[in-house]
Amino acid sequence: METITDTINAVTWHMACYVDDIPEDGGGCAFISGKQIAIFNFSRRGEWYATDNQCPHRQQMAISRGMIGSQGEEPKVACPFHKKTFSLQTGQCLNDDEYRINTFPVMVKENRVYIGL
């Protein structure tokens, strides 16, 4: 798999997929170095986000299949299992203080989507 190493910021950018692979205003899941990463193309806001694909509530691999949206200004995603919603910016669960998911930086370059791990 193609990677770009950014030594200044200590990030390795992994090529995850092409822009077309992720539906507009929706998500998809990429398999990167043995990890499942949910990637969201928030085209309505012109933003991309990446998070864990696993929901910490019941350990289900499905965040990428969730609906995205906003709460106030905060972009969020809802797990399709029990609708725990998570901030796409911070990963904090917005309707249950107990839960949090990891978020990852996304870079889009020449029609390719890279995730920083």
Binding site: F42, R44, G66, M67, G69, S70, K76, K83
Partner: peptide
């Protein structure tokens, strides 16, 4: 806004 899991 940008919608959510209720209105969608």
């Amino acid at each position: 806004g940008d919608g959510c899991e209720i209105c969608k």
